[in-house]
Structures are given as structure tokens and as C-alpha cells.
């Protein structure tokens, strides 16, 4: 008797032999993924980590008032990671937000108790320091901006 299988996505053209195909136990993750999660935990705390994960997982197209919210920008997320790599760790963890344009935004207070905000855009970042300046930087300026804003 002929058995008909449903159509398969060509995610892979092969299947390893059963003995070779066991997946990683759930307690083991690849180093890159682990490093990124560790970075989020260290710089943003568990709340920031959870919020970013939630935005990544759930905020696809059509969210928000009148369905105008844009999906989370992958370039914005990558820019966030570049910024966090250079941002010194602080007890005062930044808040994490999602803008209607689909960008990640951080907000915290600096040592002078002035509000500091950074919105990561597909082209770089927009920053704001209360009673100070606001401006933009390209992706190559993110590390310098992190050090500048941490003062």
C-alpha cells in the first residue's frame, strides 16, 4: 500500500540517522544565544530581558491603536545589542519600551538625576539627555554613545 505524506517544508533535505538526531537538552543552549541573554540580564535586569523577549515574540504587524503599530525592527534590536556591549553595568537598570515605529527605546536617570533616553532606529540611535542635549548617531557611534551617556 502506498503511504502519502503531507507536503514538507524544505527546511532540510535530509534527516540524520535516529541515533544522531537527538536534539540538545533544553538546559543546553548555544554560546552566542547564551551570551546575548546574559548581556540583557546584566545590563537590563530580568524585567528588561523579559520585556524585550515579549516584544520580539508578540509584537508583529498590526498591533496597537488602530493597528498602526509597526513590527519590532531587527536592525533596532541589533543596534541595542551593540550599545549594551559598551554600556557599563549599573544598579540603575534602564527601562525598555517599544515605540509605535517598531523601535526599542531605553530610559533611565543618570548620576545627576537627569532623564536619559535612547531610541534605537534602523539607522542608528536618537538620544536625549534632560536639561542637556538631544541628537542622533549612526551604528558606528553606538559604543561611544553608551560610554558618553553612562557618565
Amino acid at each position: 500500500m502506498t503511504k502519502t505524506l503531507p507536503p514538507r517544508a524544505r527546511q532540510s533535505a535530509y534527516t540524520p540517522n535516529d541515533d544522531l538526531s537527538g536534539s540538545l537538552p533544553s538546559s543546553i543552549r548555544m554560546a552566542d544565544e547564551f551570551h546575548r541573554e546574559e548581556l540583557l540580564m546584566e545590563k537590563l535586569g530580568t524585567r528588561g530581558w523579559g520585556r524585550l523577549l515579549y516584544f520580539q515574540r508578540c509584537y508583529s504587524q498590526g498591533w496597537g491603536e488602530n493597528g498602526k503599530g509597526q513590527p519590532l525592527s531587527p536592525r533596532s534590536v541589533e543596534a541595542l545589542f551593540r550599545f549594551l556591549e559598551a554600556l557599563p553595568t549599573s544598579e540603575n537598570k534602564p527601562s525598555v519600551f517599544l515605540t509605535d515605529e517598531g523601535n526599542v527605546e531605553l530610559g533611565w536617570e543618570n548620576s545627576a538625576d537627569a532623564a536619559v533616553q535612547v531610541e534605537f532606529t534602523p539607522d542608528g540611535a536618537e538620544y536625549f539627555i534632560e536639561r542637556g542635549t538631544e541628537g542622533t548617531v549612526s551604528h558606528s557611534g553606538l559604543a561611544g554613545l553608551a560610554i558618553q551617556l553612562a557618565r
Partner: peptide, 28 residues
Amino acid sequence: IANNAVVGQQADAKTGSILEVDVWVGAL
């Protein structure tokens, strides 16, 4: 690289070795 993989399905299935290379760049 694996030396005991199956490609194809049902009557077309063959066992042998595969060499897979996946190359990518990120958003930025």
C-alpha cells in the same frame, strides 16, 4: 557534516553522508 543521514522520502530515500554549509549575515 554527518556520515549517517537519510535524504529523500519513502522509495526515494537514500542513506549516506551529508555536508551542509549555511552562511548568513545579520540585520546591520
